Amino acid sequence: MKARKHLALFANYAIIIVLGLLFILPFIYTIYTSLVSTRDVNKLVSITNWTFDNYIMYFTNDAYNVPRWFLNTTIMTGAVIVGNLIVNPLAAFALAKLNFKGKKIIYWIVLATMMVPYHMILIPVYVNMANLGWLNTFLALVIPFLYQSLYIFMLRQFFVTVPNEFMEAARIDGMSKIGLFWKIVYPLARSPLITMSILAFAGTWNSYLIPSTLTNTPKMYVLVVGLNSVKDAVFENTALIMAGVVLTTLPILIFFFLFQKQYIEGISSSGIKG
């Protein structure tokens, strides 16, 4: 019996390792290809022949302007995360704990918007941004990302589980509703908020549709849009293209590994309860 359990455990770990290798091999190939010269693509070469020339070219060649695109992406992503940490929790708290007319209707509208592809509302968003004079500005890059129905739903599921006794005790002590939210409820949502931040980081950092639609000047390009704009010019330079892929992917991996524990806790606490 004990041997059978060990065999089953070994089989489970073997399957996990094999699946893990299958998922990670493409990224390993991408990193390796980005570190070799064009003539060595799809060849195995010694580590002594590896080079960072592809990355150096991105940051030194004026035709790519990667430092500016990287800065734009960082500013946009940082602003979106901060905005999501304010807007979505407030909406989720209202739908979870406050009583007002039309609450259920609004909640179902929020859920319904999760089923609408963003492509369907892209033209109205563009028209509104143009009327406001926000095209080719950071406002156009940030505002469309601030409302996220998925995050509202996720946080609402967590806030529902917060005992009402905490709120009632705070209200008896004279605390306002907004004070109750920021001082009592908000700190309890640390794990789902980190989960939301990771998802927002990944979704914003690699976003192409909105930035490419609302900006058309190279100075305001984000990293993904900027690298895509020069893709045709270096189409045959696979190593250089792979270096661009690594530049857009690595920050997301680092962010995830730093907060993976809180991410898993947030998914378990907000995704299945309520």
Rank of each mutant, 00 (worst) to 15 (best):
F259E: 01
F59A: 06
I109H: 05
R39N: 15
L258E: 02
V185N: 06
M167Y: 11
Y208M: 04
W69V: 07
M1F: 12
S207F: 00
D232S: 15
F235S: 13
V125W: 06
R68W: 09
I109V: 13
A96I: 07
K2G: 15
T215M: 03
T113Q: 09
K104C: 04
L199E: 00
I172A: 07
F166G: 10
I31T: 04
V185C: 08
Y118Q: 14
Q260F: 08
G20T: 06
L209T: 05
L193M: 14
L95K: 04
M1T: 13
V66I: 15
R156W: 02
I172S: 07
L180F: 03
V110D: 13
P124D: 05
I121L: 08
L214P: 00
L240S: 01
T137C: 03
M120V: 15
V225H: 09
A189V: 03
V160H: 05
A202T: 03
A3L: 15
I272W: 11
I184W: 01
I178K: 08
Q157W: 01
L150H: 13
S268C: 07
F159N: 01
F10K: 11
K183E: 05
K261T: 03
A233M: 13
R171F: 12
G203Q: 03
L132I: 04
H6N: 14
D53R: 09
W69N: 11
I210Q: 01
Y263E: 00
I264S: 03
Y147P: 08
T204N: 04
S269N: 08
V18Q: 02
L135C: 02
I210A: 04
E236G: 10
L25F: 14
D173E: 13
F158I: 00
V127I: 14
T30L: 13
R68L: 14
